[in-house]
């Protein structure tokens, strides 16, 4: 049916998608309705002292409920611009099923436009979410579990812990690393400890408690789950390989650090599946041409939009205005875009 409508739309309405053709009209009746996304309504926004924002949203009925540990892409419209970021759901599937609510916990110190905009969200406002994605869920094993969390990597574990029945026989130990005084959800963890028979947790700080090596090596017979910054994951993965321990992980690189400097330094550029080492001095177009990548070239001064392409991630600077881009997916003109962080372009 959908394929038929889209084909009709292509032939009769010169629009690639039937729903897309009607989108602005539907939005008059259903605010925030967007083809290819689910709608969700803001129920509650709260800023916590531990540099986190709690966002509770109500997805529309058609949204397929997540498994604990999965993430979604959240899209908000802010000052006319659509911005998207990926967040792990920090609530259990039962809550989504019974009360149609999901919770996101978002670090608020992130540089860049997104999180500061979240605090401006009002109750009742509509935003868009993707279907739940990701393979990082409770492993199908009877072994005891070690959960290793770093910073905001605590979120999938909260969802998992809240989703398991109180009488579960599986022994679970959570090792939660964070900067001093920035452990999230301490109350909830304490409650979980009371309600789950075989659960215990340790709030750790790297500067005080050292890294996780000792904890992990003494628990080599258990199944490890790791979520946190790339450095944490790398260390755990190396140990797991050495000790032959089963490990599941989800790691995130923090938003690429934007170094706005005129000093020359090296970055990487990914284009059509190939990765190049580039510097931050020249435009992306110059780099792609130097690397003999097939690109369409036009005026070279940002007028004609011929060299335009989709940036999947990374931050670029408009050489005409000095303006920095957002770090997520955007259309950019290669000839006037200078890389500021590592950049990935779509094929």
């Amino acid at each position: 049916m959908r394929a038929l409508l889209n084909s009709l739309s292509k032939h009769l309405l010169h629009h690639q998608s039937w729903n897309g053709y009607w989108e602005p009209v539907v939005q008059c009746f259903k605010p925030g309705w967007r083809e290819g996304y689910f709608r969700a309504q803001v129920k509650h926004v709260q800023v916590f002292a531990e540099q986190s924002i709690e966002l509770i949203i109500e997805p529309e009925k058609a949204w397929p409920v997540h498994q604990a540990g999965q993430h979604i892409a959240l899209t908000i419209q802010t000052n006319g611009r659509l911005l998207t970021r990926v967040f792990t759901i920090a609530s259990e599937p039962q809550l989504a099923r019974q009360q149609r609510q999901i919770r996101l916990l978002i670090r608020s110190q992130e540089i860049g436009a997104f999180t500061s905009k979240l605090t401006n969200l009002r109750t009742g406002q509509w935003l868009n979410i993707s279907e739940p994605k990701g393979q990082f869920v409770m492993p199908n094993t009877a072994r005891s579990l070690i959960m290793l969390a770093g910073g905001s990597g605590i979120t999938p574990f909260i969802a998992m812990l809240k989703s398991i029945p109180a009488d579960s026989k599986q022994t679970i130990t959570l090792l939660y690393y964070a900067k001093p005084n920035s452990h999230w959800l301490k109350d909830e963890l304490e409650q979980l400890k009371q309600s789950l028979r075989n659960f215990d947790y340790h709030l750790l700080e790297r500067s005080k408690d050292g890294d996780a090596t000792t904890w992990l090596t003494t628990n080599a017979h258990k199944h490890w789950l790791v979520c946190g910054p790339a450095a944490l994951y790398k260390q755990a993965a190396a140990l797991a390989k050495q000790l032959n321990t089963p490990i599941d992980s989800e790691h995130f690189s923090a938003v690429p650090a934007a170094v706005v400097t005129s000093d020359k330094h090296e970055l990487t550029l990914t284009h059509q599946g190939k990765t190049f080492t580039i510097d931050n001095q020249q435009t992306l177009l110059t780099h792609l041409q130097a690397n003999k990548q097939p690109v369409t070239v036009g005026c070279g001064m940002g007028i004609c939009h011929q060299c335009q392409c989709v940036k999947k991630q990374g931050i670029v600077r408009d050489i005409r205005t000095g303006e920095l881009s957002d770090s997520s997916e955007q259309l950019i003109q290669l000839c006037i875009s200078q890389p500021v962080s590592d950049v990935e372009l779509s094929a």
Binding site: G80, G298, C299, C304, Q306, Q330
Partner: peptide, 29 residues
């Protein structure tokens, strides 16, 4: 700049005999 999936110079096609991408090339460039 809106980042909209359809309202952008790459995906828009118009109700006219001229192919959008060809027009975009000659006209804009």
């Amino acid at each position: 700049w809106m980042n909209d999936k359809y309202i952008n110079s790459r995906s828009y096609e118009w109700d006219i005999a001229c192919d959008g991408a060809s027009w975009n090339r000659v006209h804009n460039y």
